[in-house]
Design a protein around this nucleic acid. Structure first.
Lengths: 345, 345
DNA sequence: TTGAAAGCGCTAACAA
DNA sequence: TTGTTAGCGCTTTCAA
């Protein structure tokens, strides 16, 4: 393939001049710039990013570590990251990080150690202390999405507050029997979303003077998970709640499917609220709190670019703008969430 | 950071020897190899992939181009690709390729032209002639998933045959009023899945002596798309079909949700069959044909590695093993798909 | 079996 | 404003 030397020769300039003309760094007269660009175009020159990286240390590539790719929130974030990075001329290398395992270690020990990126965006991964240290030692900016990482600027929603909001919404409608269906705090591997959303729920309940006994049902964090628990929670008409706060829209939808299968009208007889702003919300008449994954992705990219542009004094940087950007969630009533159908208290 | 020179110095050998010892290429005595490895480990040496690529031309990176990331089939493929590549020591760089657009062009003109990969896997993208040429001119192996690409080894299912199978299954149950809900052939941008599945449906119907009038309903290729069309197709009890073949499980689920909302029992009163093997199939009592996305991903990676290992005579290579690996689909009855509830003919 | 030297393609000092 | 020179960190002839 053609090298920059070919371009230089064709344009009648030195390699360095050609380099300056094409990269835009350094002074070049407009006339020669044009000549060089024309020459490059003529022979279809594309710079070797390897050679450039070798000398500059910059790769024009960003690494993204993410624990799932098919869950709605994650795939949305991923797509927005890819688009935002592409627009800035960055490649995106994806590292699907499983829970603690040999592959996970290999990502850190081998793949991330190669440092083929200018920065890293960590999406919804709860990193161990050792992993955070390792990442910091790479000497590359790191931005988080979805939960706090030590000394790292993170974009996230406030899970506790959001869960409170959702619960208060149901309480405000006059519901007495409100339960929470969510991920089990025992096996949460992402941030502590499971326990945070649970605790937001509990505190809203307590503040409203409600008992918190027997009103949390753990489930697998997915639509089938919500379905399964929905069947059992709603199975007995005598103990059936009138409102359910689900930790995610996917869980909520599972619950709704179960409810309908049991002959319960949703939303007429049962109010369900979720978190996410999932595109299926409409067809299931689901009320939800939008979590704006794409906006989180875009913000993460711009935060990363900002750090990339700055001098490398990490400490000063962090003191300056703090660690956390918290996005507000907003309630979207996809249907008329209703009050209790058969108040029982 | 430490360079190979440091390792060499510490081990008391030349750079070249250290390189041979660490990369495994070339003769090194076992004794020195051990010494070099120990030295490398001691100072935490990690080779610079850039420098290595610069001289070898190999990047240990694979580019993946894909049009969607949140549709089930695509996210499954993506996850399996990532895992298979990681296991082989390859990074995966993701290019989310939109329909014809400026960004799409930029992916080809700029990002792919940089050639930061040893090979490319194209997932479900219908490439234009010009794009295929461009890809071939990169001089890197290319493997496809999901549909034929000129001169490229592709992993796929047979969409026509699969659609036939699904339709025949419904016909075999005794259904008379069978319709197809699927993507509109007009706006298909991926391969021709929409029209292929439609034509498989038509030919099965014709072979069974059925009329093909008014039995195809185009919809957006998603769950809400199926829902919307489901509502209208099933809305009128007088013209309601007894069985529906949906082009994908997501569409099928949308149809089922619509049916249940209209008070139709599924599967008792309406049989629905889809394609994909979606994990939600169970909870919606959906019969489906598995399309094994993860297996397709793994096969694509191994095909790519094979090409990577071979001498570079592309023509010989293709003649040898043909262009297409067609995976069999298998019918999974997630529930007792039933015969017609109220035969009307 | 090992070492010395050349060079992959580029950018960044420095000099002109 | 441009050219010359010196590497970035590695692999790979070729010679010892």
């Amino acid at each position: 393939m053609s090298a920059i030397a070919d371009v230089a020769r064709l344009a009648g300039v030195a390699k360095a001049t050609a380099s300056r003309a094409l990269s835009g760094r350094g002074y070049v007269s407009e006339a020669t710039r044009l000549r060089v660009v024309a020459a490059a175009r003529e022979i279809g020159y594309v710079a070797s990013p390897n050679a450039a990286s070798l000398v500059t240390g910059r790769t024009k590539n960003v690494g993204v570590i993410i624990p799932f790719i098919s869950r709605w929130f994650f795939s949305e974030v991923l797509e927005s990251l890819e688009q935002a990075l592409l627009a800035e001329g960055y490649d995106m290398t994806l590292y699907n990080l499983p829970a603690a395992s040999a592959e996970r270690d290999s990502v850190f020990e081998y793949f991330l150690a190669r440092k083929r990126f200018d920065g890293v965006i960590s999406v919804g991964v709860a990193l161990s202390e050792a992993e955070v240290d390792r990442l910091h030692r790479l000497g590359r900016p790191l931005i988080g999405i979805g939960g706090p990482i030590r000394d790292v600027h993170t974009i996230a929603i406030d899970d506790v507050a959001t869960a409170r909001l959702a619960t208060e919404h149901l309480l405000g409608l006059g519901h007495v029997d409100v339960v929470h269906v969510g991920g089990d705090p025992i096996d949460e591997m992402d941030f502590r979303v499971h326990s945070q959303r649970l605790s937001g729920f509990y505190s809203a309940m307590r503040d409203a003077g409600r008992s918190t006994d027997r009103c949390f049902y753990p489930c697998e964090f997915s639509m089938p998970g919500g379905y399964e628990v929905g069947l059992s929670v709603l199975g007995d008409p005598r103990t059936r709640p009138t409102a359910i706060f689900a930790a995610s829209d996917e869980i909520a939808i599972g619950v709704i499917v179960a409810a309908r299968e049991l002959g319960i009208q949703v939303p007429a007889e049962l109010s369900v609220i979720g978190i996410d702003g999932h595109p299926y919300a409409d067809m299931f008449r689901l009320t939800t709190l939008e979590q704006h994954p794409r906006r989180q992705g875009r913000l993460a990219v711009s935060a990363l670019l900002t750090e990339l542009a700055r001098p490398t004094d990490a400490d000063a940087r962090l003191e300056e703008d703090g660690y956390l950007t918290v996005l507000p969630t907003n309630l979207v009533i996809r249907s008329s969430t209703s009050g209790p159908h058969r108040p029982r208290s």
